[in-house]
């Protein structure tokens, strides 16, 4: 059993599959036998806004909402959102894993703001003494599978202690079926070529 509370903060842009990734993680944690609470915040997310999901593991968890600077693990599916969540939520010596997709925010497209560079994420990672894992799989045919690529690496690096490969696979089988499940399981088991920063 996990000794204390473990907080996971997930973020991305509407349409990237944060909801599914969060639901898989939540169920995997449950299959591993831990107490868990979660909450999704999507507001108008379907329209290209930010989607946030929070998962809190442990006996002494009350609110599903994580306090700022208290996330042990931040999972991001987009680079701007990775930096945003890192600055707001990641604790010192925590871990950030992010899929390095760029969906430019409105002001970046309009030339009014700068796009986030990987270097900024690395710099903040050093400030926080955090572990940063960048994931990039350009050969993925379907961008909507980027979430499972990240999940495969969360498993590979054992980023949620006590949750094993079988638990993730059980969770995926709870939520998907047929060819979709097979494709995602295959990716989950075989994802290898992340770039560690």
């Amino acid at each position: 059993m996990m000794a204390s509370v473990f907080n996971i903060f997930l973020t991305g842009v509407g349409g990237q599959g944060i909801g599914m990734l969060s639901e898989i993680l939540l169920r995997a944690v449950d299959h591993a036998g831990f107490m868990v609470k979660a909450v999704d915040t999507h507001g108008l997310a379907q329209r290209g806004g930010i989607v946030v999901s929070q998962i809190r593991i442990g006996e002494a968890v009350y609110s599903p909402l994580i306090q700022s600077g208290c996330a042990d693990l931040v999972i991001a599916l987009e680079r701007h959102e990775a930096l945003r969540a890192m600055a707001e939520m990641l604790r010192e010596k925590g871990t950030l894993i992010y899929y390095d997709a760029v969906w430019q925010p409105l002001d970046v497209r309009l030339g009014k703001a700068k796009t986030v560079k990987n270097r900024q994420i690395d710099d903040l990672g050093r400030t926080l003494n955090a572990r940063v894992i960048r994931v990039h799989r350009p050969e993925l045919q379907d961008a909507r599978m980027q979430n499972v690529a990240v999940l495969g690496l969360i498993n590979k690096y054992n980023l949620v202690r006590g949750v094993e490969s079988i638990h993730y696979q059980q969770a995926m089988a709870d939520l998907m079926a047929g060819a979709g499940l097979e494709a995602n399981l295959h990716l989950f088991k075989n994802v290898q070529n992340e770039i560690k920063v």
């Binding site: 329209r47 700022s68 600055a87 925010p105």
Partner: peptide, 18 residues
């Protein structure tokens, strides 16, 4: 008080038309 956040240099992301 809550922990201080780090200064943010990320553009806002308002919802928008698909």
């Amino acid at each position: 008080l809550p922990k201080k956040e780090y200064p943010l240099e990320v553009a806002h992301r308002p919802a928008q038309l698909c």
